[in-house]
Design a binder for these strands. Structure first.
Lengths: 326, 326
DNA sequence: ATGAAAGCGCTAACAC
DNA sequence: GTGTTAGCGCTTTCAT
């Protein structure tokens, strides 16, 4: 069923049907309007959005590229993004990159072929600025800091400050030997959090001890292994974890070793993913407004798409949420 | 940049360029092939997939409608689905319905307008069979049982059997007073799990006690409240939870009441979402092959799309994973 | 080995 | 108030 067929059935032209469908019907008589609407309803006609997109040169679709939706941090961003998109009449295509540059580049290509109106890129790694510069589609980066000539939007959080506050909190709580478990500091994100940790130590007259720093991945497994490693090689009474997943792994390791949390070792995480409040003990963490980051990303993106306005960078606040783990 | 422009630059026709792009170039001379490819590369030409889709009447895109990606169960399905789709050259549009019929219907409409080649519907509720019957797009239902005249694919698990096994396991472990906390049994899914629970009780000569049954939602909060309610109104030494989220809430409640798990009360869940092994104590649960369900759903869907073959229903196996909570 | 041309379903400028 | 028509960028049949 096409608009043309509907037009025939109603004895009008396809232009008339088009106008009615799109609400541009101020100059259409109520009689034909009703007739056409009736036929559309009766025939169960559904407009071909692909044809419309070809003509209009917009798809009302955005792409979102992230490492992994199964990660609670990213699934919350995805949900915030999809909700905001839905409100604005956009759909979202989901792409999981596993932080692999090759997959990111492939998806950027595919999304451009699909003529998405904009792209949201979410990850923890840096790099691929080349393929970005080549890409003319509006883009906003979330939780990610890539240098690029391209005018991209950015939704960020002050990671250094957050890590500083976390470490400082542990110190105020009396910790003297604070471990740091996070992802490889080759990524800017992790590097910023490491800087915050080190700065807090220095500002409080504590010294930086390489033995207390364990860098691997943002996973539960890494948190577990890192904690076991620190326990083995040094003394700790507090651990700042690069994210909540790591903190969950750390807590697991500590429990296995029968070390009391927070009494003997205090734990603080970063993110405040949805599960963190249900962990035992409930996780003290630096809360990022994750859902909101997804929302703001698409709102910024859509304003770039529709109004061509460019608000280049939006910095969101983190807050420390104190729960039972420290 | 269009195919036509590339053709001009290469002094060939757009038909020739099209053939080269699509590998239908057996009759194209290597010279022109190289020339055209060179120009495409140099100009950074990206084919317009929308125009292609209009012509070809397929978009290589599928839609997936689920209650909420932030729920670990659904995010794992989404990941399995996206991975499988990516392998087959398809993209996926993500839609969160919050289990609301109105949103599901809206998304079904939008996905049809976007001319997706197929739709995956994942949820725990029943109903909306009307809008399904009206929809001609190939569809597969995951974890969901809706009667429909339409030829839809189905990926399911034997929920009654799973719940039976779970309850039976608790009984074999010595439990005599087993609670049941799950979602409202108006949904077929929850009803099946309730039947399994009741059947296991009866088969073991235990009797069904309404006081031990708490029906609300598939959430941590419901698990917490349900456990508190059961503790108040009856005696329990084991709880079968309708899913792992409920089990997590139940564990939280038990810990607050200083009740030892599994010594005083044993807990078993359903799903085996990714976090369950990291809970304290690690959760014993009926494992569904969640990721695989997402994969199989898109594989079935794509075979329906491409080969028009219809494998109507695929039943996947659950297995009991014993961990520390019972 | 290559090209001309029709047409996918829609919108919008312009006629009437 | 309503209709005619020219594309949007691509694929494909049929010529040559």
């Amino acid at each position: 069923m096409t608009i043309k067929r509907i037009a025939e059935l109603a004895n009008v032209s396809s232009a008339t049907v088009s106008k009615i469908i799109n609400g541009k019907d101020k100059h259409i008589s109520e009689a034909t309007r009703q007739k056409v609407l009736g036929i559309i309803e009766r025939e169960g006609y559904i407009p071909n959005g692909i044809a419309k997109s070809l003509k209009m040169k917009r798809t009302k679709t955005i792409g979102i590229i992230m490492p992994d939706v199964m990660n609670l941090f990213f699934s919350e961003i995805a949900r915030g993004a999809e909700d905001a998109a839905e409100r604005k009449g956009y759909s979202v295509i989901l792409c999981n990159s596993d932080n692999k540059q090759s997959k990111e580049e492939k998806y950027i290509q595919i999304l451009q072929e699909k003529m998405v109106d904009g792209i949201i890129l979410t990850a923890s790694e840096s790099s691929i600025s080349k393929s970005l510069d080549r890409c003319n589609t509006p883009m906003v980066l979330v939780d990610r800091d890539i240098a690029s000539d391209k005018k991209v939007g950015r939704i960020v959080v002050n990671n250094e400050e957050g890590a500083y506050n976390a470490t400082n909190f542990l110190i105020k709580k009396g910790c003297k030997n604070i471990g740091f478990i996070s992802a490889d500091s080759k990524t800017k994100l992790s590097a910023a959090r490491l800087r915050g940790y080190e700065k807090a130590l220095i500002d409080n007259g504590l010294k930086i001890d390489k033995e207390k720093i364990f860098l691997q991945n943002y996973t539960i497994e890494s948190g577990y292994q890192g904690t076991m490693a620190l326990l083995m090689q040094t003394e700790i009474d507090g651990v700042y974890c690069g994210n909540d997943l790591i903190a969950i792994g750390a807590i697991k390791a500590l429990k296995e070793k029968n070390i009391k949390i927070p009494k003997e070792v205090k734990i603080i995480g970063f993110d405040d993913i949805s599960i963190s409040q249900y962990i035992d003990p409930p996780l003290t963490t630096i809360k990022q407004p994750i859902y909101q980051m997804g929302e703001e990303a698409v709102e910024m993106l859509i304003s770039m798409i529709e109004e061509k306005s460019i608000k280049m960078t939006k910095v969101l606040e983190t807050i420390l949420v104190e729960r039972g783990s420290s």
